[in-house]
Design a protein around this nucleic acid. Sequence first.
DNA 1: CGCGAGGTTGATTACTCTCAAACGACGTGG
DNA 2: CCACGTCGTTTGAGAGTAATCAACCTCGCG
Lengths: 291, 291
Amino acid sequence: MDILEKKLKTRLTSQQYQNLKEKCVSESISIEDYLAKLVSQDVTRSPLPENFGDDEKDIKTEIINLFNECKILDGANPSDLEKLVEVAEYVHLPKRKIICHVEDVCRFFYIIANGLMKVYKISPSGREFAIDILSRGETFGGGRIINGSLHFAEAITIEDTEMVLIPKNRFLEFSSLNPQVITNISILENNRFVDMFNKLMSILTDTAYQRVVQTLTALMHKYGDTLHFNHKIIAELSGTTSETVARAMTHLKHCGAIRLNYGSVQIIDPIKLSRDTIKVNKNTKIAGSQR
Amino acid sequence: MDILEKKLKTRLTSQQYQNLKEKCVSESISIEDYLAKLVSQDVTRSPLPENFGDDEKDIKTEIINLFNECKILDGANPSDLEKLVEVAEYVHLPKRKIICHVEDVCRFFYIIANGLMKVYKISPSGREFAIDILSRGETFGGGRIINGSLHFAEAITIEDTEMVLIPKNRFLEFSSLNPQVITNISILENNRFVDMFNKLMSILTDTAYQRVVQTLTALMHKYGDTLHFNHKIIAELSGTTSETVARAMTHLKHCGAIRLNYGSVQIIDPIKLSRDTIKVNKNTKIAGSQR
DNA sequence: CGCGAGGTTGATTACTCTCAAACGACGTGG
DNA sequence: CCACGTCGTTTGAGAGTAATCAACCTCGCG
């Protein structure tokens, strides 16, 4: 197996090789298993998905519908959009399918049609930090394609997900004909920048508990009051650890702000949620925590 | 003076009023002094600056030169740029002149010609966090104007500064005629977003000392090895406090990586700088710290 | 020469990360 | 259908970083 690793090493940049190693360590998977997984996923994806042929018309309609729901494509020329449909690929991806790694070449502009995709980054120490969870109508890769850069983050589906892929060069042609699309991207990037800075300040001024509440509130506004996310993802979004999330959540549960089920959180009292974010740690005894 | 405050209050949004109060507290200045300062600055600025008239040609040449150094204007139509000069205002601003507050309407697109401007935000608890220090050729407000939003941060000159102001609507006209400018903004915003996310991760994984070193390194690349910034600004850029910066700097001084003068830092050994960032706090006795 | 802003250093406090252990839920394969 | 392993959740204990508070020093300026 050393031979395989050596062969890989000569074919990858040191950064890419580093990422691969980290990935394996963080997923506690051997390199060979990891490669096997990649290959099997690639083999099942590369050819066009099965449901082409008779359904082709339906899929095209579906893609057009998706385009219309996609904020970034607002104001684009409809005939250009129709041309875009012709080069778009509609793919079904399983849960935990890796979309890209840090430093990967941007090959596609992605639009989520169904399901959820997590965009995140791994620190040298192995901690993961989520940038965003993308759902229907949201896009990925646009900014980096316009920028002419490589991917700066990793992306992975967190449930079975369908998305539309548009090859990079087709997207560049399309966007150069539709300046409004660039403007939309610019607005999106600006908003993300501001959000990120606010999050940064929140990390430096708020407690971890407050950040968890902020994350829950934000997710509630996007996905409704029942959130099917596990502690790890909420931790990655809040910039903390799953243990801290668990502590915050049990506190909120005892306050009556949320209800917990295995793998999901239901927010039953948003006001309590934001109000009862008192600084509580293990030393400050939590009222009602004794059974 | 209560009457004045009341009159102000009815004319400002509560957010703006809040900001005003915080500003006064943080600068430990009374509201009346603050207003007097604002008025005097406004009176001296509003009319066109003195050096118009004979020098008008020179100033126009200077503005064109500035435009050419400005990355965001790369690829713009030269004749449109010349038209832009006609509506541009060249202003001289003193040190500590406040350019805008959070939630202010974006009135201008700013291009720095000389001097330095700090873009920052104040947390509810009063701590300040710097987003960036802008120097010649850098711009401010473009993203927010395209976005159609209010300012999300504060901006202040940190030394005597000259800048070119372009009224918002003129800038919008100009950019709509020059899609490349929007593309440039989009690229800039994407880069700032990525930088901000990396900074966020750095806060969650690195020690404060490491972040100070990162800040110094970044500043060195931009401004050379002698940095005329005080501890407070370095702290705001690093997301820490001036005390922590002082501790980090004395450590680096003892390592021989930097030299300290009152109000400035000289980096004499960049390699040591990045290497000697061992985790050191007051308990871990610093070798060589005894005189 | 005194004042004020900025720089330095010390002591304390507390938040939360890390490590650890135990338990519950879920899916798979026998 | 049950045993098992894995993953997610929960809770505890300990330790370390850095913010805060406080005091003192230093420089530059009038």
